[in-house]
Design a binder for these strands. Structure first.
Lengths: 258, 258
DNA sequence: CCTGAAGAGAGAGCACTGCTCTCATATCAT
DNA sequence: ATGATATGAGAGCAGTGCTCTCTCTTCAGG
């Protein structure tokens, strides 16, 4: 388990992922960084991102505050590590949930993806907020380290949509399909080329809507934007929203005959 | 203009809205509170909610830090005032945008509502984040003061949907209308009773989806969840999303014949 | 008009934060 | 064994929210 822990956290450093720590000192250092991330994750989960304190982490680590700066450049650096850590945990859970549904059940895979996101978000509201809530002011996540793990969910979603389209399982969407303007069409063409997709413009734009809508629904629930007692059957509401969104994206119903 | 300022900020205190300050001292006090809110709004807009500092506001006010505690109980209280202030500004802009479209143009009113939300959010990202981003940790907005202004947008949206339904202008939605589970149906019935609505369950649930999806799309854009160069034609993307969402909610196209 | 109460501001202080600097010690490679 | 390096401790600075006390001003009632 501790070995797993180290490996998992080693993924946080893409450059160091291939060079395993060899000397005892390097091993100890890697372990300390892993401990800092673990403690930071706990503080983050309990108190939220804004209250994440390097001094508190140092106390829990049994070390004086200045010592943690040997391992973490500053507070932002730790936030970045926790950002990557959370993105990867969410990505792992989404991948597992999607992978547990037959590949040809596109509607079921979409529903599994959505439910995995919601389940993780409700279980880890503070970490979800770090990923999808207000950006921490003055903090800009370094794109070269976060785009990889940060795009795992949308990559999985695109895979489902494109797979359904290639399998000829995308049903004609609602009556009214708004025209795709020229500029947007250019963006979509770039995305299609980058991911090697086959889906046409309108469907791709609808996929983007399903993407943002999924996180909109989850954020409303996690951030308490629904009133206090407005929706008591939140799981049913979410499932309804997922079903409508699947339809919007042209996906067949979950479990539909292959 | 300063008079307007005072009146606008007086709305922040529902209890005091009817009792105008009479004595000079009360007038001075109201003015000071208004100044604090104004300075807080500026700090909030520039530095974000987490960096909002009462000491900094006090400095800008030309007063020692402890003095502001005569007017504002604590930092949370100021955040609550700014929350109400922002909710009302957003509500005003949405109401104005919706009101500028003919009442029978339900699709147009929906589009105007969505664009007003997006425009305000892009213009005031920090204040939008305070309303719809991660909740400030340890801070729970007092419902009795914020629910009123906080529900203006959804109230306007519900008005459009219900109006369209009552006018018989709601078109049959997409092929697949997922069943509404029992618990969700109960929640929807309560909402229908509370607002005196006529829309049936499925349509009401779709309205909730349009609601959360609208803010999901706006949040993605404001919070930078889209990649850096993924979407360059963001207004076109948003308009496309709005059009699909209108269709999801059963609304006719904007400007459709009355 | 005078006086006492209440309002308002100043200042000191406490506990906390991020972060830097210096100094001493422990560890490692040569 | 030795010299370089990694690590931790401690002090310190500037900032934060918030409280307490002390003084001065303003106002209302006699």
């Amino acid at each position: 388990m501790p070995e797993d822990r180290i490996e998992a956290d080693a993924d946080v450093f893409p450059a160091a992922a291939d060079s395993r720590p060899r000397t005892p000192r390097e091993r100890a250092r890697a372990q300390t960084v892993a401990d800092i991330v673990r403690l930071g994750r706990e503080h983050l989960a309990v108190h939220g991102a804004a209250a994440l304190s390097l001094r508190a982490v140092a106390r829990d680590l049994g070390v004086v505050s200045s010592a943690v700066y040997r391992y973490v450049e500053n507070r932002e650096e730790l936030l970045t590590l926790l950002l990557i850590d959370a993105y990867n945990e969410l990505g792992d859970e989404v991948d597992a949930a999607v992978g547990a549904v037959p590949e040809a059940d596109f509607g079921g895979r979409f529903a599994a993806l959505g439910r995995a996101v919601r389940d993780w978000a409700l279980r880890e509201p503070s970490r979800y907020a770090l990923l999808f809530g207000s950006p921490v002011p003055g903090y800009q996540a370094p794109a070269e380290r976060t785009t990889g793990p940060g795009t795992r969910v949308i990559t999985a979603l695109i895979g489902i949509l494109d797979g359904a389209f290639r399998a000829g399982r995308v049903v004609a969407t609602g009556r009214r399909s708004p025209a795709v303007a020229a500029g947007l069409a250019g963006d979509l063409a770039k995305i299609r080329a980058e991911f090697g997709l086959a889906v046409p413009d309108d469907l791709l734009a609808r996929g983007a809507l399903a993407w943002t809508s999924l996180f909109g629904a989850v954020s409303f629930e996690v951030f308490g934007q629904y009133g206090a007692g407005t929706f008591t059957a939140r799981e049913e509401l979410f499932d309804h929203q997922l079903a409508v969104l699947a339809d919007v994206a042209g996906l067949p119903a979950a479990g539909a005959a292959v």
